[in-house]
Each structure stands twice: as C-alpha cells, then as structure tokens.
C-alpha cells in the first residue's frame, strides 16, 4: 500500500494517520442537535443559511426552461412586492440571494446568461459526475467545457475507484490537474462521495488529499446515492479542515450536500460549523449547502419569525 505521496516532482509527503474517536464524534453531533437556537439568533442563522445555498439541479431532464426558472429563484428567493402585499404592516428586510446555482456543464452558459448582473455564481459539476469513472482526458475535457462556458466554480468528483484500491497518488494527481485547469479565479470544490469511500479514516484521508491538491472546498456527496451528507460525516471533515488550517494556515471551505431539507437541520449544521471552526467560517466563501428543497423551508421559517405567522400554502414558488 502506498504510504508516501509525491506532491511535486521530487517532493514527497508521508500520508498522515488520523486519531479518531467515532463514538465521541457522534456524541458531539448530538450536542449540536440539542442546541436551542431561537429569536434573533435563529433569524440571523436563517439569513446566513440562505446566503450559503447552492441551488442545485442535476437531473437527466434538465432543460433551458428549468435552468432559467431556477436562476430566477436564486436571484430573488422571494419577491419583495409579494412579501409587502402579504404582510403590509411588517417591516421585513430584503432577503439575500443564494450563493450559487449548481448545474451540469451543458447548462453553464444558459445559467450564466440568466444570472447576468447578479451576485449569484454559477457552479458546474465536472469530471464525469457523478461516478467519475472516466479517463483523465475526458475528466479534463468535461471541466474545460464548463470553464469555457464561464463557470465560476467547479464541483469535481474524486476517483473513488482509485481511492479504494489504494492508489492515492492518482486521486491526488487528478485533483491537482483540475486545480491547474481552474487557475486562481475559479473556485474548486472536491466531492468525496463519503457514502462510497467508507469509514471515518477514509473520509479524513480523502479530505486531506483534496486539500493538499488545492481544493478550495471539500464537499460530502453527489446527492446521487442514498447515503448522502450526515452531521457526523461533516464533522469529521470539519475536523480535517481545522487540522489543515493549523498546519498550513489555509482556510478550506465545507459543503455538505444531499439530504438537507429542513431549516432546522441547516441550523444544526451552522451551529456545528460555528462551534468547530468559528465565526470566520460563517461565510458563503467557506460554507455552502448543496440543496434544492432547503431554500423554501428557510424562507418559510424567516416568515414565521419575522412576520409572526406561517404564510399560506403555495406562498413560496416551486420550480
């Protein structure tokens, strides 16, 4: 088995070993879930969460129309006139736009056009998403297509086949190559697909490989297999990010994806982030939710908290 990683020509690093107490991590997660976030704290958390959403559509049935509608939602999650019409007497501050929309490379140009003039970024999955079982040239070509179409962010998948067969060098090299393609300007998120790579040690090792190879973000899952993001998996990764920051001084972002549907869960995640990495990470540059249905639940809770009432069914648009 490989024990040393070649990071550049002639420069090697030993693979780290990790000290992990899994039961303790699960207990810690329970701690975060039992926090009681109410009042102003809750509202602030909800606003933060909206700003951190990567609104995602990665379906075989995606069309230009669907992408345009999703982009409209990303720009304006809830239109002001509608809010004012419904709650004329309440002073509800404007809602922020989400962080990004996440689409297949094919739809990057379309999304880019629909989001023109807004702060919303366009993220594209790449490198043979979701399985990643394609050769190097196709991985790169896939990425290049997304970049040429103007993607601001690339969500790549790691080569789980190589990882599980112990070829960590290959995993590392493939990430490093994509990093080089992306250059300085484009943000690179690396999807570990934790449901496939297995236990806590593997999650930490894959996180480390991605961060060493130049990832800006590490991301839990593709959302395409049943075992999606969980609090425990994310906490293992947050610990990885913290260790990396302690030794390298570089702040890596975190993106749990798949399976986060309620505002309550999102607040649990933010509590975990805040108490593990601190306030500095509480920013869309360092934390994202990969989700499609979460946004409406966040909006609903904002309305409940700031207007004091639950809007009627159908108040929020469904794309």
């Amino acid at each position: 088995m490989q024990r040393v990683l070649t990071v550049r020509a002639g420069v090697t690093k030993p693979l780290p070993s990790f000290r992990i107490c899994r039961a303790g991590v699960n207990e810690r997660v329970h701690d975060f879930c039992s926090r009681k976030i109410i009042g102003q704290s809750r509202l602030n958390a909800l606003y933060q969460a909206i700003r951190m959403v990567d609104l995602t559509t990665l379906e075989g049935c995606d069309t230009a129309g669907k992408i345009r509608q999703l982009c409209a939602k990303a720009r304006t999650p809830l239109s002001d006139p509608i809010i004012r019409e419904q709650f004329p007497l309440k002073n509800i501050p404007a809602l922020p736009a989400v962080a990004a929309v996440c689409v297949y490379p094919e739809w990057v140009a379309c999304a880019k056009k629909a989001l023109e003039g807004s702060s919303v970024k366009v993220a594209s999955v790449a490198t043979g998403f979701p399985a990643g079982q394609v050769n190097r040239s196709i991985r790169q070509e896939d990425t290049r297509q997304a970049l040429d179409a103007g993607a601001d962010e690339i969500d790549m998948v790691i080569n789980r086949g190589a990882f599980l067969s112990g070829d960590y060098q290959k995993v590392y090299d493939e990430i490093a190559e994509i990093r080089e393609l992306c250059g300085e300007q484009v943000r690179l998120k690396v999807i570990l697909e934790t449901g496939e790579i297995g236990d806590a040690e593997n999650i930490r090792l894959a996180s480390w490989l991605a961060m060493e190879a130049g990832a800006d973000f590490i991301k839990t899952s593709t959302g395409k297999i049943p075992a999606a993001s969980s609090m425990s998996v994310s906490l293992h990764m947050l610990y990885g990010i913290r260790e990396f920051f302690r030794s390298n001084g570089r702040k890596i972002g975190m993106k749990p994806a798949g399976g986060i549907r309620s505002a309550k869960e999102a607040i649990h995640y933010l509590t975990m982030l805040l108490e593990t990495l601190g306030e500095e990470w509480l920013h869309p540059d360092y934390f994202r939710f990969g989700a499609s249905t979460l946004l409406n639940d966040l909006l609903r809770e904002v309305m409940i908290l700031s207007a004091g009432t639950d809007p009627y069914p159908g108040f929020f648009s469904v794309e």
């Binding site: 926090r35 009681k36 976030i37 109410i38 009042g39 102003q40 704290s41 809750r42 509202l43 602030n44 958390a45 606003y47 933060q48 309440k90 002073n91 509800i92 501050p93 922020p96 309620s262 505002a263 309550k264 933010l270 805040l274 108490e275 306030e279 509480l282 639940d297 609903r300 809770e301 409940i304 908290l305 700031s306 207007a307 004091g308 009432t309 639950d310």
Partner: peptide, 29 residues
C-alpha cells in the same frame, strides 16, 4: 418547532429584523 401548526401567531413580542451585519454568533440568544 419549525413545523406548521406548532407556531402560535402573535406570541412574538416584536418583529425581528436582520441586517447584513448581523451574524449568527455564539453565545446564542
């Protein structure tokens, strides 16, 4: 609860507001 039905309208003394500077912070409310 965030769920429909558990929330009673009017039990908030005042409407809460948020500005972009407001961060989610520890200690919580």
């Amino acid at each position: 609860g965030p769920h429909i039905g558990t929330h009673k309208p009017g039990n908030l003394k005042q409407a809460l507001a948020v500005s972009s500077k407001d961060l989610f912070r520890n200690p919580y409310d």
